[in-house]
Simulated scan of single mutants.
Amino acid sequence: MHPEGAHMYPFSFTLNPNLPSSFEGSRGYIRYTCKATIDRPWKFDQSSKRAFTMPIIAEREETMQGCCCDAGKLGVSLHLNKSGYVPGEPIVYDITIHNNTDTTITSVTLTLRQIVKYTGFSDSLFSSGNPKYHTKTQDISLFGHAVNIGQNSTHSINRATLVPSLPPSHLEGCNIIDIDYIIILKIPCSWSSLKIERGIIIAPPSYEECVFGKVNVRDENDDEHTSGQMAWAPAYPFYDWSQHSSQTYGGFAPDVARPAPPDYNQI
């Protein structure tokens, strides 16, 4: 029995660390929800449900190598807010570094790597007929500032970086080009370095998800004789953060990653 008034029941539950991250896609999704139900005798039960995001969590600890002997242990954890993004959306990340070595850490880098795999066939008389593969990578810096993490100390980096204008993962509908993306955290320490790699998905937004809505540029004066610009290049959907520059994530505004576009014409 509950007497009249407000009641609060704090609880905690440990989730399996191997659970996949939350993801929303046009052909499928991974969702996590909490649901609370009030059992009311002789009446309909009342429930409340709330969804939450399952982040990517990666942890690693290694014994680092010094000049002549072990330099000590370095422990690192990387938390990403989720695993699926659209261009222009912020990747919110938390990096925690436990430096239990005898070396001061001066560099931390977080990189988004695009991996493009090309498949082709040769019509040469001497060709085996088997497909030929060629892979190219393009790195985009998300975080690469100098740090000063002393011996036997802990340091945290909490930031957000916008996903630049990029083609979506896997390039659905094309069987000769495949695209994957991974996040790489690298921390040099003494004579070695610690590295964490985790895959993410960059998905194209649907029309319903477009922040500016649908636009039709044809007007009443256009007819079959109307032509447009003939020299055209594809432009990938991108959320215009400049229109919402006052919005922050966790109290800080996202950095803007501005890479040079992949040089596809020099393959």
Rank of each mutant, 00 (worst) to 15 (best):
M1W: 02
M1Q: 06
H2M: 13
E4N: 03
A6I: 09
L15H: 06
P17R: 09
S21L: 01
F23K: 09
G28L: 02
T33P: 00
T33A: 11
T37K: 12
I38N: 14
I38E: 08
R40P: 00
W42L: 12
F44S: 13
D45R: 05
S48H: 08
K49W: 00
A51Y: 12
I56Y: 02
I57F: 15
E62T: 09
E62D: 15
Q65A: 10
Q65K: 11
G66C: 02
G75D: 03
G75H: 04
L78S: 05
L80M: 06
N81I: 05
N81E: 12
K82T: 05
S83M: 06
G84T: 04
Y85W: 07
P87G: 13
G88T: 09
G88D: 04
V92M: 07
Y93L: 07
T96M: 10
I97Y: 03
D102T: 15
T103A: 08
T106Y: 14
T106K: 15
S107Q: 15
T111I: 14
R113V: 15
I115C: 07
K117S: 11
Y118M: 05
T119K: 15
D123E: 08
D123S: 10
S124A: 14
S124L: 09
F126M: 10
S127G: 12
S127C: 06
N130T: 10
P131V: 09
K132L: 13
Y133D: 08
H134I: 00
T137H: 04
Q138P: 00
D139V: 09
G144H: 13
H145T: 12
N152W: 04
N152K: 12
I157E: 09
I157C: 03
L171V: 08
L171H: 07
C174P: 00
D178H: 15
I179L: 14
Y181T: 10
I182G: 00
I183L: 14
L185F: 07
I187S: 01
P188L: 09
S192D: 15
L194T: 14
K195H: 01
I196D: 06
I196S: 05
E197W: 03
P205H: 02
P205R: 03
V211I: 03
F212D: 13
G213M: 06
K214Y: 11
V217S: 13
E220Y: 07
D222N: 12
D223E: 03
E224K: 05
T226P: 02
T226I: 04
S227Y: 12
S227V: 14
G228N: 05
Q229Y: 04
M230P: 00
M230S: 13
A233S: 14
P234M: 06
Y236H: 06
F238G: 01
Y239I: 08
D240T: 02
D240I: 06
D240K: 10
W241F: 12
S242I: 04
H244V: 11
S245I: 11
Q247G: 00
F252S: 08
P259W: 09
P261S: 08
Y264A: 08
N265Y: 07
